[in-house]
Amino acid sequence: MSAARNATKSTLTHAPLLAAAAITLIPIAWMLCAAVKSGEDFKWLFLPRGDGFLGIAWDHLTFSNFTRLFGEAHMGSAILNSFFVSSVSAVVATLACAAGGFALARYRFRGRGPITVLVLGALIIPPPLLLAPTYELLYHLSLLDTFTGLLLPGIAPAFGVFLFRQATIQSVPRELLEAARIDGCGELRAFFVIVLPLLRPMIGAFMLITFLMWWNNFISPQVILQDPQKFPLAVAISQLKGVYYQDYGLQMAATVVSVAPVMILFLLLQKEFIAGLTAGAVKG
């Protein structure tokens, strides 16, 4: 094949891909630009034009949206709440699911069959179905408007148990556990010392997706929490409009602050993220 034909072919593949990539990135770029603009400068699509470097009026850009966000709009506590809720859930859910999944995969005990069926059966329950009864239950337990009430229902999800059951079958050899037993290692100790390290790839992936799910979770905090001091970012941001309608700069600054931590995590841990988000799907 001649070099010229090769070049045409490569342009033909890359042109639509680059166009699609641009379309994907434009809303994110637009959000970033809106977050540092104010007042008159919103007449520009992206950054305000001027006679600065690259024809952009850099001196017009402002961080005032961000300072207002933490000052008058009280987003500081929302960020802390999001971090708290997401990291506690990620750690606890990972431990609970790893323990359950390992037990189902590597022990023979009375009740194993029915429990496995329950785990699989729970996967088909659509979460909205449980919304009203869970709310009623939390009301009777006096757990409405508490972090306990928000976190407790989600700290041992069935799909996590299922994922860790699969991961154990794949990467925890029976022989290793038997050897440990012969050496006098207790069962629970074996779980922490031998099994958890072997499950490390799944632990990383599962912690990340649980963190992401809780970071982006809206419906449960919206339903369960009432005190604005407890709101995570997703809920706090949805209420900006009441006071700040069409305050584009503030709304987009809030979105940037909400999205940035997850984006940074993703860039650092890309492989684990994609493995986690598509886990169990192709092989499942």
């Binding site: 809303p27 994110i28 997703a234 941001i237 987009m252 999205v259």
Partner: peptide, 15 residues
Amino acid sequence: FFSPQLVGLVFSGMI
């Protein structure tokens, strides 16, 4: 192509 998934439904809705 994968990155918008991370933005999440709430924050995508804002944008």
